[in-house]
Design a protein around this nucleic acid. Structure first.
Lengths: 201, 201
DNA sequence: GTGAATTACCTAACACTGTTAGCAAAATTA
DNA sequence: TAATTTTGCTAACAGTGTTAGGTAATTCAC
C-alpha cells in the first residue's frame, strides 16, 4: 500500500512547509506578525488547510517552543560535558544558556514569554525536566563537596535560573539599555562567580 | 469663564472613567482581554470617544505602566528609608520589589512584559531612572566601604535587578511550579545574601 | 470500468480585534 | 437668533483566529 504512505508523506510535507514558513515570518517580523492567513498565503493553500495540521495557532507556537527547548538542552548538555569540575560546569552551562538566548532571540522570547502562562509547559515539554536535572546535578555536587546540608539543591537551582533568566530578559526586552556585549558578559560572569561562591559556603 | 473649566473637568472625568474601567477589566480578565470596544461598552460611550482621550490602545497601557513604576519606586524608597546599613537597604529593597510584584501581578506583567519592546520606556517613564539610582546608591556604598575598585556599581546594579527580576518572572510566568511561598522567599533571601557577600568581596 | 466512500480543499462566513472618516446633534459664542 | 465650535455617533476599513458547509478530486470495493 504505497498510496497511503505517499499521502502521509505529503501531509508531513505540508506540515513542514507550514512550520518553515511560519518560522521565516517570525524571524523576519517577530512573533506578533505571525498570522494564520499570512502563512496560508505564503504556502499557497487556503486557511483551513492549516487547521488540518494544527489545532490552532497556539499549537504552532508550542511546536516552536518544543524545538527551542530541544536545542537549548542539547547545547547545555554539550557545554557541561566539556568540564569535570561542577563549578566549571555551572559556568559553562550559564555561558551556553546566555549564548543560546542571544543567538536565538526568537526562540527564547517564545519559550519564556507569554506562552508559558497559556499552557503548562512542564507537562507538554519534557525537556524542561532535563534542563532542571542538568543544572541541579553540579549544584548538588558542590553542596556535597562542602558538606552543606542547610540548603537544598532545588532552591539553588531556582536561584541559578533566576540570575541568568533575569539577566537575559532584561537584556532582551529592555531595548533602551546602552550596555556593551562585553559588559554584559562580565555581569553574567560576576553573578555566576557570586552564585558559586555562595554555594561553597 | 466657568464653562471652559467645567468642560475640562468633564473631559478629565471621562478619561478617568476609561482608565478605571480598563483597570477593572485587566484585574478581572488580564491584559489580553482588554479591548477598546469593551471599554466603550462599559462606560456607555461609543468607541471613538476613547480615541479623543488616548492616541491608541498602547497609550492606555503606557498610562498603567507609568502608574506601576510610580507605585514601585515609592515602595522601594520607603523600604530603603527604614534602614541605614546599605546591605540591609538592599535586602529591604529586594523584599519590597518582591512584594510589589506579587501584590500587583498585573502591573508587573505590563511593566516588564511585551510593552518594553514596543516603546522605549526609559524616555517615557522617568521613574526607571529613580529605580536605578535607588539601587545603585547602597551598592556603591558597600563597594566603597570594602575598597573595591575592580568592579563598577552599574554592573552590580544589573546583577541585582537580574536576580530579582528573574526570580519574579519565573514565579509569575511559570504556572506549573509547585513551590510554596515560603521557599520562594528563602530563594530570594539566599540569592540576596549571596549577592551582597559577593559585593563585600 | 463503474459507483460509492473517502479525502482534500476552498469559499464564505462568524465573531472578534484596533482604528478612522464623516456626519448629525447639541452646546457655546457672537 | 445665527454662526461656530464641540461632542458623540454610525458605519466602515483592514486586520485577526476559527469553523461550517459544499465541491471536486481521489481512492476503494465491486
Amino acid at each position: 500500500m504505497g498510496i497511503a504512505e505517499r499521502k502521509l508523506r505529503q501531509r508531513e510535507e505540508v506540515r513542514n512547509l507550514i512550520l518553515e514558513t511560519a518560522w521565516e515570518m517570525v524571524r523576519e517580523e517577530g512573533w506578533q506578525a505571525l498570522s494564520i492567513r499570512k502563512i496560508a498565503d505564503a504556502i499557497e493553500y487556503s486557511v483551513p488547510v492549516i487547521y488540518d495540521h494544527f489545532e490552532n495557532k497556539e499549537a504552532i507556537l508550542l511546536e516552536f517552543g518544543k524545538q527551542g527547548f530541544g536545542i537549548l538542552t542539547k547545547k547545555l548538555a554539550q557545554a557541561k560535558k566539556k568540564h569535570d569540575d561542577p563549578g566549571a560546569q555551572l559556568k559553562a552551562i550559564a555561558d551556553a544558556y546566555w549564548q543560546f538566548a542571544f543567538n536565538n532571540k526568537e526562540y527564547y522570547q517564545l519559550m519564556f514569554g507569554l506562552n508559558m502562562q497559556a499552557c503548562e509547559t512542564e507537562k507538554v515539554i519534557p525537556e524542561r525536566g532535563t534542563f532542571r536535572r542538568l543544572v541541579s546535578e553540579p549544584i548538588e555536587k558542590i553542596l556535597n563537596n562542602h558538606h552543606r546540608t542547610d540548603v537544598n539543591a532545588c532552591m539553588k537551582y531556582h536561584t541559578f535560573w533566576s540570575i541568568i533568566h533575569g539577566l537575559v530578559s532584561i537584556k532582551t526586552l529592555a531595548t533602551g539599555t546602552e550596555i556593551s556585549d562585553e559588559v554584559n558578559k562580565m555581569v553574567l560572569d560576576d553573578a555566576m562567580t557570586g552564585f558559586i561562591k555562595n554555594l561553597e559556603r
